[in-house]
Write a protein that binds this DNA or RNA. Structure first.
Lengths: 165, 165
DNA sequence: TATTGTTATACTCTATAACTATA
DNA sequence: TATAGTTATAGAGTATAACAATA
């Protein structure tokens, strides 16, 4: 139905992992950490961290977003957003702009340098993605994302109360 | 081919995520963190942490394992293993036993209490797993694990140099 | 000389709580 | 009073480096 299951479950040396591998969360953690270790140096070579990379991505996509909303998008507290935005602003990749009618908040926008940075960072990470997904067919790639999203949505904290009633 | 793609990609409020959702690693991170947040309280209610839970799982499955090997299984340094083993030993869930012929290392074994603890902890986490995977068919569940393992194996740090030549 | 376990230390990430300035 | 941003602080998790005992 899918394929002969010829995947050697990546178990270390001569010891068994089955007790943990039975849990979807463990397989997910291992796969995620492996990918993360692969990509991180590439991101850092550009002067970014995963957190600033992600923030830049969201700001590019949602111009004039506020820090509070950015925090919600990244699932981090406002206090953490400050540091990330400080870092991006200090690198001249984004700017904090005044908001008409509310002097409390900032409208975050990527600078030109920020847009260029995102373009190249995005491209390089895409290359990693392609390398890591090389053995998966296009259908398998979308399927994997779909399954991950469904798992995320199924867990209690998964937003979207929209059940299909 | 697979199913109508009716998965609402869990995007926050009114803002777009697509820049990040394009990357398999981001979807994996989000799914993993959601599952982790779901399961953690259950594990902690038993007096365990994710790290001690995992270590107990490996020790149960590989009796007389040494700390160094345990570290390799868990992908953490030996110095970190010490703290985890201290904690498990302090809770009387495992014991450090003498090894014939090598007085440097310990043979780690679960106590009876440790085996009972693992049984109940395993059962409870399985329940979370089932809840989180509720919307996936049995085939989809194995498929998801399979895809995750293939991604993990594909990344540079993925062990198993065994290509199918 | 190399290895096992250990200790001390530091770094990253993130959360909590209290503060300020606006609303 | 409530909210946006800020600051200070603390905790979890993990890594690095140096050390003692043993191989």
């Amino acid at each position: 139905m899918t394929r002969p299951r010829r995947t050697a479950p990546p178990a270390p040396a001569g010891l068994s992992d089955a007790n943990l591998r039975q849990f979807i969360g463990y397989n997910m953690k291992r796969a995620y950490l492996t990918i993360d270790a692969d990509i991180r140096p590439t991101i850092e070579a550009l002067g970014l961290r995963p957190a600033t990379f992600s923030a830049l991505a969201v700001i590019i996509e949602n111009p004039d977003i506020t820090q509070t909303i950015l925090g919600q998008a990244l699932h981090i507290e406002r206090s953490g957003v400050v540091l990330i935005v400080d870092e991006l602003e200090g690198a001249d990749l984004i700017s904090r702009n005044k908001v008409e009618g509310d002097r409390r908040s900032y409208a975050l926008r990527a600078t030109l340098a920020g847009q260029r940075m995102w373009a190249t960072a995005c491209k390089r990470v895409q290359e990693h993605d392609n390398r890591v997904l090389a053995r998966l067919s296009p259908e398998e790639r979308t399927l994997l994302k779909d399954l991950l999203n469904r798992v995320e949505a199924a867990a209690p904290s998964g937003r979207s109360g929209e059940e299909t009633p």
